[in-house]
Amino acid sequence: MSASPPHRGEDLFALLGLAPTFQLDAAELERSYLERSREVHPDRFASAPAGERVVALQRSMAVNEAYKTLKRPVKRAEYLLGRHGVAIGSNERLDPAFLAEVLELREELAEARQAGDLPKVTRLEKAMKGRHGAAVASLGPLFARVEASGGDERARALADAKTTLILLRYLARYLEECEAALDEDAA
């Protein structure tokens, strides 16, 4: 029984023995994760020399990290995007019309929160959840395009995926605010 240490930036799909694709079968992902965890968990190396114990610890940590990232569709998509060499910066340009709409929705939420109008907050949250879900669902076809094409077509598909992922960040933050508003009242 032995394990080699993970190297920095080791491919998360490779760590779990999976092909790098967006369309992952959730059950298969979990199976691979549990199998790898069994192999590398530090408990299996409890009476091994210190060096091996450290390696097991690092491996196990990397496997946990890989699973955490790959099981969430948005995180998986962001990771795949980076794998194709496309990064999402902290100051990305957005479609001005979308930006204006988000700002307006935020104001509406802030007002409802201020007024303690919880039914309204719940309504806004529900509407946004629908929109968020639709955006997440659109990632599948987008990455199918990325994976099926090459050259300019792939670059365009990647750009579209990137736009969707940036949009998703805004939507996720909005949902966090809804949750905070509802929590605030519960406390």
């Binding site: 965890s37 069994r38 968990h41 408990d43 299996r44 409890a46 009476s47 946990n64």
Partner: peptide, 13 residues
Amino acid sequence: DVLGGGEQKVVLL
């Protein structure tokens, strides 16, 4: 017992 060299049945996460 497991960590002391017994049979490893499960991994605890």
